[in-house]
C-alpha cells in the first residue's frame, strides 16, 4: 500500500504529465483547433468533418479536434462559433440547414450566420436522388408527377425541414402537385418504409440509397444536381427528365467567427484547397454523392446569400415554421 505522501506525489505527477504548455509562438496554429459540428457524433456531416479534420491536421501541422455541439436544430453549434474569439482556433462545419434554412424557420435566432460568421470556403456540394418504392411502380419522373396529380401521394423525409423534406417540397412546387409529408428520424427508417411499400417516394441523399438502387429495392427517377452522378450514370438529372427549373443540393462549408485575421483566413482557405485535393477526401466525398467545391471567401458568402433567398421562398410558400 502506498503511504499517503507518495500517493499524493504520484497523483500530482500524473496530473503534471499532461503535455507542457507550448510557448507562445507567432506561428498558426500553436494549439489545437476545435472544429465544431452542430450534430451528434455519427451523422453525415460528422463523418465529413472527421475525414476533413484528419487531413487538415497534416496540412496545418497542428491538432484539429472535432467537437460535437448538437442542439436547437443545429443552431447551438452556430451560436458557439459566433461567440468564440475570431483567432482561428474555433471553426465550424456548416451545412445548408443551419446556415441558410434556419434563418427562415426561427424568428428569434441568437446568431444569424450571415452577420456573425466569416465564410472561409465551401467544401462540397452533394446532389440528392428522387426514388420510388414498390408502392408506386413508375419508371420516370414525368410518370411520378402524373401519378401525384392523379392522387395525393405520400412521401417520407429524413426529418422536418431537412434537405430531404425541402427538396421534395420544391419538387411539388415546380411540378405543380401537393403530397402528404411523413417526417422520420433519419433517412434509414424512412427508406425502410419506402422499401416495405408503406410510402410512395422520397428525395434523399445519394449514399443512403445507392445500394438499394443497385439491389433493385427502389428505383431512382432522377438526381437533383446540374449534372449526372458518376456512381449512377444511367439516372438522368431532373432537368434532363423534363423539370427545367428543378435543382437542389446539400452542401458543407468551413466557417469561423466574424473578424478572422486575414492571414489566418488565407492560410485556412489554402489548407482547405489542399485538403480537397487529397484522394481519400475526394473519394469519401464522392461516396457521399458530393463533389469537392472551390468557392472561397467572398464567393462562398455570395453563394450562401443566394441559397438563403431561394430556400426562403420555398419555406414561405409551404408555410413551415419551427417556432
Amino acid at each position: 500500500m502506498l503511504n499517503r505522501r507518495s500517493a499524493l506525489a504520484l497523483g500530482a505527477a500524473s496530473l503534471l504529465a499532461a503535455p507542457a504548455p507550448l510557448k507562445a509562438q507567432s506561428r498558426y496554429p500553436n494549439k489545437p483547433i476545435t472544429l465544431i459540428v452542430s450534430y451528434a457524433a455519427g451523422g453525415g456531416t460528422d463523418a465529413v468533418a472527421r475525414i476533413f479534420a484528419a487531413r487538415l491536421e497534416k496540412i496545418l501541422d497542428g491538432r484539429v479536434l472535432v467537437e460535437n455541439r448538437p442542439g436547437a436544430a443545429a443552431n447551438l453549434g452556430t451560436e458557439a462559433v459566433a461567440a468564440a474569439a475570431p483567432d482561428g482556433y474555433t471553426l465550424l462545419i456548416g451545412n445548408q440547414g443551419p446556415m441558410v434554412v434556419n434563418p427562415h424557420l426561427f424568428k428569434r435566432l441568437k446568431a444569424d450566420p450571415a452577420t456573425t460568421l466569416d465564410p472561409i470556403a465551401l467544401i462540397a456540394d452533394a446532389s440528392l436522388a428522387v426514388v420510388v418504392g414498390p408502392r408506386l411502380p413508375v419508371a420516370t419522373l414525368p410518370e411520378l408527377v402524373a401519378a401525384a396529380k392523379a392522387k395525393t401521394l405520400v412521401y417520407g423525409s429524413a426529418s422536418n425541414a431537412s434537405a430531404s423534406h425541402l427538396a421534395a417540397l420544391l419538387l411539388g412546387q415546380v411540378a405543380g402537385f401537393e403530397a402528404r409529408h411523413v417526417p422520420y428520424r433519419g433517412a434509414g427508417p424512412a427508406l425502410n418504409d419506402l422499401v416495405g411499400g408503406h410510402i410512395d417516394f422520397m428525395v434523399t441523399t445519394i449514399p443512403s440509397v445507392t445500394g438499394l438502387i443497385e439491389g433493385k429495392k427502389v428505383s431512382a427517377l432522377a438526381v437533383t444536381g446540374t449534372s449526372r452522378f458518376a456512381g449512377l450514370p444511367e439516372v438522368p438529372t431532373a432537368i434532363e427528365a423534363g423539370l427545367k427549373e428543378y435543382t437542389a443540393s446539400a452542401w458543407y462549408g468551413l466557417l469561423g467567427p466574424r473578424g478572422l485575421p486575414a492571414p489566418i483566413r488565407a492560410q485556412l482557405s489554402q489548407a482547405t484547397r489542399e485538403t480537397l485535393r487529397d484522394p481519400t477526401v475526394v473519394d469519401r466525398l464522392k461516396d457521399d454523392g458530393a463533389t469537392p467545391a472551390d468557392l472561397e471567401g467572398q464567393a462562398f458568402a455570395e453563394f450562401m446569400a443566394k441559397e438563403r433567398a431561394r430556400w426562403g421562398e420555398i419555406v414561405r410558400a409551404a408555410n413551415i415554421s419551427l417556432e
Binding site: 500517493a7 497523483g11 500524473s14 496530473l15 499532461a18 507542457a20 504548455p21 507550448l22 476545435t34 472535432v66
Partner: peptide
Amino acid sequence: VFAAIISAVCIGVFRFALGIPVPVAPWLIG
C-alpha cells in the same frame, strides 16, 4: 489523494485513450 489519482486516471482514459474532447486545463495548456 484519491481525488487526485482518480482525476488523473479519468484524464488519461477519457481524453487521451478515448479521444473525447473534454477540456483538461484550458487555462494552463490551452
